[in-house]
Nucleic acid binder design. Structure first.
Lengths: 156, 156, 156, 156
DNA sequence: TTTT
DNA sequence: TTTT
């Protein structure tokens, strides 16, 4: 009991967010995030290695993602590992891992999509007045302000 | 804007928690936490180096700390760095750093103080029914369930 | 480029380590780690949710794991997410995620397996003189002392 | 024993790095990093709170910082808390905390200082051939490739 | 499929 | 003293 399951990622989106509005006022966004690491191999050649992560955001954070993120966006993410298990059509047990995002922060984007004045680096800033939006902004210094929906009990 | 300020500590308490009940139903607990690292120096001798951290907990977490932690307790902590600045009696500007705890988890205690059956490794488990207790337990997998008081606006 | 891919886990092993000695002096250990989170559902009932993680350790850390860890051991882990992809016997592309461990620390075991005197909380402490042991111990305060083999270029 | 002392920061530099070359081929860089968090107070007004951190880098990382970082640079940092203690001129014991940087990654700067072609977001990328440079680049996905000098034994 |  |  009493565990810690924490993931910290910083990378770029490989595609625009995929957002689904569900019954009961629920929203979920799925993101594909690339984290690339480069190192030199034994011959001194630079090697790049990219890992792709499936991110899942719920509620207000999903809406913020839909509104401000797009292919190429650079974000910092905190979350946890969550596995889905199911049976495939052959009746085989399958497992898939996703990162359940608890907070994220937009980084130094070129902001062309945010319509913000000036074109400077932006965050998911000033997401108007929605409480959920506030939460995502607040998370910049820690996931402590996360609103309902961030908990792990499934949102439906 | 949009920063991350996150601290992760795992160590042992150097003393029992110091808890103060303030006006307005506020509670604050101060803890001294030691994190010890050992390494070998250039001569292959093992060296231990201990860093002492001043932790500050508010609200429900302070109460849980008061109830379950004591000198020697091993805990895992997530928080952020916060500085206090003031003038000393010479009129000099002074600064002090504390770790504002956002969540913590008790580890492998010998549980003699928790009255739990069996003496197995325990956490701040089963802290009965208090909502605050729930919050601290929940934080084990992320600080997302933190209750009021975890935000950064000062609690008074 | 320039990404961060970091995982922090704290939990218990579901089984003894599985260790394989490979050609070329390489060793790999596979661990199953459970991180359990508990929270109250909307009805106030306590719910426990366990996530199982597949950990992979190489080199000296694999040997330390073999020597000191066993089913039930509580450990703190830092690592990164790594995916394996392959084709299954139906010719389908499959993907599996593992946690590549970069450092770990043993926590508060009751040490019955480590033969340490006294039964106090122990870590992978004093793992005698092996350099590998030193590395794993050192990582407790940061993965900075990781020895060869911690890099991401595959060890064979 | 066996502790974890980890700090993760993401913010902007308040000034250019201060770099000192010491005897014995040692280099140290000091940085001032701001992490800003914004939240709404109880009246719904947006409040910004900035924490300033003193960072210390050694060796190759200090050189990379000198070469690529400047006032305003946005960086992601991993490190640990380290305290200095000394006696002030009144003979009083004083303590100061610094963040010992173990790895860092440059983020989405507008790169005007790096002379890189195009003005796109850059990291401390391709820092040519210096081994130290490699180390800092490598740290982007984890501090596991840190070279000598990242250890905690003082570099002189 | 991102980014440099 | 940064950044938005």
């Amino acid at each position: 009991m009493a565990g810690v399951n924490k993931v910290i990622l910083l990378g770029n989106l490989g595609a625009d967010p995929e957002v689904k509005y569900l019954e009961g006022d629920n929203v979920v966004a799925n993101l594909r995030l690339a984290t690339t690491e480069s190192y030199k191999d034994r011959n001194g050649n630079k090697v790049e290695q990219t890992e792709w992560h499936d991110l899942e955001l719920w509620g207000g954070q999903a809406k913020i993602a839909e509104q401000y993120l797009k292919k190429g966006s650079q974000i910092y993410v905190e979350g946890k590992i969550k596995s889905d298990t199911w049976q495939d059509d052959q009746g085989q047990n399958r497992k898939r891992i996703k990162i359940r995002v608890l907070s994220f922060t937009m980084l130094g984007g070129r902001s062309d999509s945010m319509g913000n004045e000036g074109g400077n680096p932006t965050q998911q800033s000033q997401p108007t007045s929605k409480p959920a939006a506030q939460s995502a902004a607040a998370t910049s210094s820690g996931p402590d302000l996360s609103p309902a929906g961030d908990d792990d009990d499934l949102p439906f």
